[in-house]
């Protein structure tokens, strides 16, 4: 159960190796027993995350989970809920392909769309059902400012994130009165494994700062979290640009 200070007792991280997701989990670890379920495909990085969280006192379980296989999601997540309530779930999986590569290779574009959008919709429905039944819960959807108005440089990724944001914004409203809340995170550039191959812009955030903004939004009961703070301004500027200008943006 979430307690009076907004501390969950159990967290489900979908995309169990996400830097931002793990940073959120770390913020909720304060020496109390925290049940952490990492849902991901098996990898050395996952083992590393399990070891690290366990050493900090978390009781860690892993679930074999592939975001690209929506037909397996319900069966994969059912045991997590069967073993006890999930107080907070983080939808953190996602692919960030190079725009040109995605346009050169149809399969890459399709895979990006199905993981970032279809996969997110799929777990969103499963989580909403399970949490409505338990009468409480928080869903954190890690989306992106790229979805606010996709640009020439990122519209494969951006369009999928636009869909994800739209879905979770809608989900948030549809769950009012059920005890379940949704926070849609509109993240700007955050230095992480996912963005390691890119050159970071001046106002880039860190996973830890993103996690702080996210846990604050959860406590405040906000439906949207912007991180870094500048992402909100950036999104407003990009939304206001005439299409003619947007078309020529180099980034």
């Amino acid at each position: 159960m979430m307690d009076a200070l907004g501390r969950p007792q159990s967290v489900l991280l979908l995309g169990g190796t996400s830097d931002i997701g793990l940073a959120v989990v770390a913020r909720y670890l304060d020496g109390r027993p925290l049940r952490v379920v990492l849902a991901a495909r098996d990898s050395p990085r996952l083992k590393e995350a399990v070891a690290q969280l366990s050493s900090r006192g978390a009781v860690v379980e892993t679930v074999e989970f592939d975001a690209a296989e929506p037909q397996t999601h319900a069966a994969a997540l059912a045991p997590c809920f069967a073993q006890g309530d999930i107080d907070l779930a983080i939808v953190a999986f996602g692919l960030l392909p190079d725009q040109r590569a995605a346009m050169a290779d149809q399969a890459t574009a399709v895979r990006t769309a199905s993981v970032n959008y279809t996969g997110a919709v799929s777990v969103g429905v499963v989580l909403a059902q399970a949490m409505t039944a338990q009468g409480h819960g928080v869903i954190i959807a890690l989306s992106s400012v790229a979805g606010e108005r996709p640009r020439p440089a990122n519209f494969v990724y951006g369009s999928a994130k636009a869909g994800m944001s739209a879905f979770y914004d809608g989900l948030a409203d549809s769950l009012i009165g059920t005890g379940v809340r949704v926070v849609v995170v509109r993240a700007g550039f955050v230095r992480s494994r996912m963005t390691a191959h890119l050159s970071a812009p001046p106002l880039a955030g860190t996973p830890e700062r993103a996690a702080a903004a996210i846990t604050e939004a959860v406590w405040r009961g906000r439906a949207v979290a912007w991180t870094p703070g500048s992402a909100r301004v950036l999104a407003a500027v990009i939304r206001a640009l005439p299409r003619r200008v947007l078309r020529r943006l180099p980034f």
């Binding site: 159960m1 009076a4 059920t178």
Partner: peptide
């Protein structure tokens, strides 16, 4: 009726029938 409940401290609401 399904509705959110809290205790007197008005923290951590959850839904029940």
């Amino acid at each position: 009726t399904a509705r959110p409940l809290t205790g007197w401290g008005r923290v951590a609401p959850t839904n029940a029938r």
